[in-house]
Amino acid sequence: MDSRTGEGLVAGDDGQRYRFTPEDWAQRGEPAIGLKVDFESNGDRALSVFPMPEVAGTRHVLAPPPPREPVNDRNKLVAALLAFFLGPLALHRFYTGRTGSAIVMLVLSMTVVGMLLTWPWALIDMIRYLMMSDREFAARYPRKD
């Protein structure tokens, strides 16, 4: 159950998930993930949810809460623009929190040969950022708290 809203999810025999509230929980205490339960369904709601004794054949299981969205304070478009315009300076790598590779890239950029390596590297980074979904970008480059 979500401690903030009090709502929970339960999976039915049909493979669907049903929402329930604390009022629908027909037992003392709180439900636990993985607990086998029985319930009546009404649309997408589970009513009169109660735990089942451990008996073979029970198939209703409390479903884990849906995964949380990754939180990110960075923008993939900003990272791509930094990579395109200032690639060899590695600002896009600093921006995404990849400090180690940013320092390597910056040191390489101090030579002509290194500059020949860092421009393509930055362009590849730019293309990767633009091809990633926002969710994947947020998961790969999470906010540092």
Rank of each mutant, 00 (worst) to 15 (best):
L123T: 02
I103Y: 09
A90N: 08
N75L: 01
Y18L: 05
P65R: 10
V112E: 05
L116S: 07
E30D: 15
L91I: 06
H92G: 04
D125F: 02
R17M: 10
R68F: 08
A83E: 03
V107P: 06
P142K: 04
R140C: 05
W25P: 07
M132H: 09
L108S: 07
N75Q: 12
L62C: 00
F137L: 03
I33E: 14
P65D: 10
P67K: 03
A80P: 05
D44E: 14
P67F: 04
G97C: 02
G8I: 05
H92R: 00
T21A: 14
L106N: 06
R68N: 11
G97W: 05
G15P: 07
V113N: 05
D134Y: 00
G114C: 02
F137K: 07
S48A: 14
F85M: 12
A79D: 04
F50H: 11
H92S: 04
G57S: 02
T118V: 06
A139P: 02
G29P: 11
K76S: 04
S109D: 10
E7A: 11
R74V: 01
T99W: 14
D145K: 11
G114L: 01
I33Y: 13
N42K: 14
K36V: 12
T118K: 01
A139R: 13
R59N: 11
D145V: 13
G97N: 02
G57P: 06
L35D: 15
E136L: 13
R135S: 10
T96R: 09
N72P: 03
R140V: 04
R140D: 03
G114P: 06
H60L: 09
R143V: 08
R98Y: 06
G34T: 13
A63T: 06
G8Q: 01
G6H: 09
I103P: 07
G100L: 10
F94A: 04
R17G: 01
P31S: 05
I124D: 10
G57R: 06
Y95V: 03
L123S: 02
Y95P: 06
V55N: 13
G12H: 07
R143S: 09
K144V: 09
D125Q: 05
M1D: 13
K36G: 05
V104D: 03
R143D: 07
S101F: 07
P65E: 15
A122W: 00
M126E: 04
S41R: 13
M131Y: 09
A80N: 09
R98Q: 15
